[in-house]
Simulated scan of single mutants.
Amino acid sequence: MKIIFPKFDKLGMPLLGLAAATFFIIETKKQLRKRTRPKTERIIENGAVAAVALPALRLLLLPGMYAAARLAQKKNFGLLNWLPLPKWLRYAAGFLLLDYTNYFWHVLLHQSNLLWRFHNIHHMDLDMDLSTAWRFHIGENIFSLPYRSAAAALLGVPGSLVLFYEVIFEGCTAFHHSNIRLPYEAERRLNWVLVTPRMHGIHHSIVARETNSNFSVIFSWWDRLHQSLRLNVPQNEITIGVPAYRDPKEQSPKQLFLLPFTQQRPWHLPDGTVPEREELYPPHHLCP
C-alpha cells in the first residue's frame, strides 16, 4: 500500500501548517468565545491526544482511502467511473460527494453508541479553539478507515482527488474549530457556503439539541438540506463540552485515551440536571 505522497507532504502539509499558524495568531487577537481554562494546559492535553491520532490518520487512513480509490479506478468501479462525465465535472462532483459522505459519517459518530465513545473525546474539551481540531482519539481515526475508504471506492473518485480533498478537509476543520471572531456580516454571508466558527461552536454546546446539529465539515449545504442546521445561539451563551464531563482533572491524556473503554455517563450535569435553552430565534438565524 502506497504511503508516500510527495505533493501532499511537500505542498499540502506546509499549506496546512501555514493555515494553522494563521488561525492561531488570529484567534489570539480576535477571540470569539471567552476561555474557561488556561490555554497552555489545553494545548498540552490536546497535543498529546493528537500526537497519537495524527500518525494513524497520515499512515493508515490516508493511504487506505487512496488505495481504495485507485483500486476502484483500476477495476472501473464506482459511480463516477460509470458515468460519462468530462474530467472537470467528475472531479467537481467527486469533491462534493466526498464531503456529503463525511456529513453522514459525522452523524453516525453521534448516533452510534460505540463510535460516540471515541468521538466523545473530541467533544469533552471544555473550550474550543484550533487545538480542538486535532483532538481526536486514535480509535476514531481507525474506525473511520473502512467507512471513508468504502465511500471513496463506491463513488469512484480519483486517488489524486482523495489527497486534494483531504487537504481542504483538514484546513476547513482547523478553520471552523478556531476561536476566531469574524466580522458578523462577513461570516453570515460565508456561512451560506462554508462551515464557520460560529456555526461549529454551536455543535460543541452542552445542550443536546445543539450538539446534534451542524454536522457538515466543509459545505454548510448538507445541514440545510437535512434540516440539521442550527445557528440561533449567541456565542456568549454557549457552554462548550459534554455535561457529564465538566471536571478539568478528567482531561489528562491518559484518562482521555482510556475513557472510551469505561462506562459512559448520561447526558446531564453532575447535579443531575439536563442543559436546555429557550429558542428565541429561528434555527437559520445566525446569532453574533
Rank of each mutant, 00 (worst) to 15 (best):
M1W: 01
F8W: 03
K10I: 15
K10L: 15
A19P: 06
A21F: 10
A21D: 08
T22P: 10
F23N: 03
F23S: 04
I25Y: 14
I25G: 11
I25R: 04
Q31C: 11
K34E: 14
K34H: 12
K34R: 13
R35A: 15
T40G: 11
E45Y: 10
E45R: 13
G47Y: 05
A48N: 04
V49F: 02
V52K: 03
V52D: 02
R58Q: 12
L59M: 09
R70M: 15
N76Q: 14
W82T: 10
W82N: 12
K87Y: 13
L89C: 11
Y91N: 15
F95T: 04
D99M: 08
F104G: 02
W105D: 03
W105R: 13
V107A: 09
V107P: 02
H110D: 01
S112Q: 12
N113E: 10
L114S: 09
W116F: 04
F118Q: 02
N120E: 10
D125T: 04
A133S: 15
I138E: 07
E140I: 01
E140P: 07
A153P: 07
G156D: 03
S160D: 13
E166A: 12
A174Y: 14
R181M: 10
E187P: 09
T196N: 09
G201P: 00
I202E: 00
H204W: 04
A208R: 15
R209F: 13
T211L: 06
N212C: 00
F215P: 05
D223I: 09
R224Y: 09
L229I: 12
L229E: 00
V233P: 01
P234D: 01
P234L: 07
Q235R: 11
N236K: 12
I238W: 01
I238N: 00
T239W: 03
T239F: 06
I240G: 07
G241L: 12
G241T: 08
Q251H: 14
P253F: 10
L256G: 01
P260Q: 02
F261D: 04
T262W: 10
R265S: 09
W267D: 01
G272C: 05
T273G: 04
E278W: 03
E279K: 05
P282Y: 00
P283K: 03
H284F: 08
